[in-house]
Amino acid sequence: MTEAAFIDIDWAGRPVRIEYQWIARDRAAAPLIVFLHEGLGSVAMWKDFPQRLCIATGCRGLVYSRPGYGRSTPRAAEEAWGLDFMHRQAQEVLPALLEALGIDATRDKPWLLGHSDGASIALLYAASYPQRIAGAIVLAPHILVEDLSVSSIEKVRAAYLETDLRQRLARHHDDPDSAFWGWNDIWLKPAFRHWSIEAEISAIRCPLLAVQGLDDEYGTLAQIHGIARRAAQTELFELADCGHSPHRDQPERLITAITAFIQQQPHGDKP
């Protein structure tokens, strides 16, 4: 894995610095997996999972921190995310990043692997750009807001205010307040209770693997079952003894399942 690097993109008329990291970039003929982190994630918080998966699949990897996270440009203190913040990441930030890095997604169609909010962003990208994606793997995705999700996010808010959570997040984010409050505030807005991407999912045409831990404190099986009802090609993978982060709780089983899924697709075993 290479060291993290930075590139500027134009987003909403202003330059934004994006932290990113390549895995096996010299493997030019191999499929590309783009990793999209969770609501409090970053390049660093994936740890070694992207590298392990790329070794197992023979793929290249691109890991990045969204604006407001990791070492990317922090969210301004007065900047509040809108109800469409995941749509904007899928339809504005990710395409701009791919273009800035010289990735022509119409020819070099990436696989997207997203976790939590990142999984929802992957679904939205797949629905918006069906000709620019090879397939998607979504871990603990959100397609609607459940009471369980809100309850758990309220508990995390209390932990951020009352425990050392802020200090722990500061190891991975230049501005932990930017990362935390951008995510937490929008999820706890009353209007966000009505957020849903169920209608968009019906437009997804690419291969899709949806993964849910059976002990997930942020979502239930209703999330991935809802995806399968709207995108018939979806393969479901339900993991016992697994919470909200399958790549941390059950990495070996997850890597085996993803490797098999990618390699069963046309050209998925391309070296």
Rank of each mutant, 00 (worst) to 15 (best):
R17S: 12
K155R: 14
K109I: 01
E238G: 06
I255V: 04
E238R: 08
A210Q: 09
L221M: 09
L40W: 14
G182L: 06
F35E: 12
L94A: 09
F49A: 01
A158N: 06
V145F: 06
E162H: 12
P110E: 05
L94T: 07
I121L: 07
A76E: 15
I9L: 00
L94H: 07
Q131R: 14
A232W: 10
L94R: 00
Q233P: 12
A29M: 06
Q223P: 13
A199T: 14
A231G: 05
S149Y: 14
A140F: 03
A203V: 03
G135Y: 03
Q265K: 06
R60W: 01
W11F: 09
E3M: 09
K270W: 00
W181I: 03
D185N: 11
S149N: 15
R205N: 10
A105H: 05
D164V: 07
A105R: 00
R52E: 13
A179E: 10
A231P: 14
Q131G: 10
P271Q: 04
R230G: 06
L112I: 01
D241G: 00
V43G: 14
A159Y: 12
L53G: 02
W183E: 08
P50W: 02
H244V: 11
D215T: 00
R171M: 15
I55R: 08
T73F: 05
R171C: 12
A136G: 07
L36S: 11
A24S: 08
I197W: 06
A96L: 04
V145H: 05
A5D: 15
R17Q: 15
E252T: 15
Y218D: 03
S149H: 11
A228C: 06
R193S: 14
S151F: 04
D8T: 09
E200H: 14
V138S: 02
P15T: 13
A29C: 05
A4P: 13
R71H: 12
L101A: 09
W187V: 15
D175N: 14
W11A: 10
E235V: 06
Q91M: 04
L221P: 02
F35Q: 03
G226A: 12
D26Y: 05
F192G: 13
K109H: 09
H267S: 06
P271T: 01
I227C: 04
G58D: 12
Q91E: 14
R253C: 09
D8S: 09
I23N: 06
I186N: 01
